[in-house]
């Protein structure tokens, strides 16, 4: 996609001064679009809220207010309280922090996996390609939710890093197919051939020449994987297969909230709303990045 378009695009002679750097062009295009600006601002706010927000409230997420069970939002409890007396504001921010961390890490790991697996499959055709493609097909056949749910007894309390790795293991397949296709076409390009004839080792070629040329695809993919990971984590935790108590995340909070939502709407809507806003902001950023990286973009 990008590589082919790059080749077709005629080199534009800079009108005056130096040619603008790639990074600056992308940043200008990204910030020039409304969705990019809104998405980035909202995401920044959410991160600030997740990191600094808990210290603003009076309650910590482990506190229980035994004078107020299931009470509506007030000046004492900004988002109200749960059935246990826990402060919804504190618990929600704690859950958001966990969900964001899980989402970011899972996205990074899965994109790295997709890049390496796809590039190796595309560069070394033959049995490496066949094995990796077959492995990706196998993982695509089994619904990720099913396998992760079956494995959930292994993620005991505090084992969330293992959970992140498993989550990442089910997010990389489709991207790796795209990376594989683009690597096959990159392999024919002169600069790769030149490197090969100079005796550069294949692994070095992949990491120094192939992957950097796919960086725009990978950055966009990593961004969109964050939202995919957050959504998967929410669904798993909702049914008790993901983050285990005493840890909280969006999923466990939504599961608790949905039980009392009919007569205590604040236990459900604040968490659900924050989840939707988070995912929406990440998707907006991803979409704006994709447009900004697109060489065919007019701006």
């Amino acid at each position: 996609m990008t590589a082919a378009d790059d080749a077709l695009e005629l080199p534009r002679a800079p009108v005056e001064g130096r040619a603008p750097s790639r990074l600056r062009t992308v940043a200008r295009r990204f910030l020039g679009s409304a969705q990019g600006r809104i998405g980035a601002a909202v995401l920044l706010l959410l991160f600030l809220l997740a990191l600094a927000g808990p210290s603003l409230g009076k309650w910590s997420y482990t506190d229980k207010d035994f004078t107020a069970f299931l009470s509506p939002p007030s000046s004492e409890h900004w988002f109200g309280t749960l059935q246990t007396g826990a402060d919804v504001y504190a618990v929600t921010l704690r859950g958001m922090r966990k969900s964001l961390v899980v989402g970011l890490l899972a996205a990074l790991v899965s994109t790295a996996l997709a890049a390496v697996a796809g590039a190796f499959a595309g560069y070394f055709s033959g049995w490496t390609d066949r094995t990796l493609t077959w492995g990706a097909d196998l993982l695509l056949v089994l619904p990720a939710f099913l396998i992760l749910a079956v494995m959930s007894p292994l993620f005991g309390a505090g084992q969330w890093v293992l959970f992140v790795v498993m989550l990442a293991l089910f997010l990389w397949m489709i991207t790796s197919k795209v990376v594989r296709g683009m690597t096959i076409s990159l392999k024919q390009r002169e600069f790769i051939q030149a490197a090969r004839y100079m005796g550069v080792s294949p692994v070095r070629i992949i990491f120094r020449h192939v992957l950097p040329n796919l960086s725009s695809l990978l950055i966009v993919d990593a961004t969109l994987n964050v939202s995919a990971a957050i959504l998967t984590e929410t669904s798993l935790s909702y049914f008790g297969f993901g983050i285990q108590p005493p840890d909280v995340s969006f999923g466990t909070l939504i599961a608790d909230g949905s039980r009392t939502a009919v007569y205590a709407p604040w236990t459900f809507w604040f968490v659900a709303g924050l989840l939707v806003v988070t995912v929406l902001a990440v998707n907006l950023v991803g979409d704006a990045l994709r447009d900004a990286f697109d060489p065919g973009s007019s701006r």
Binding site: T234, S235, G251, I254, L275, N283
Partner: peptide, 13 residues
Amino acid sequence: FLVLALPVVVLAN
């Protein structure tokens, strides 16, 4: 865009 940010568990509830 909005729907893609809504997981099924939240939407169903």
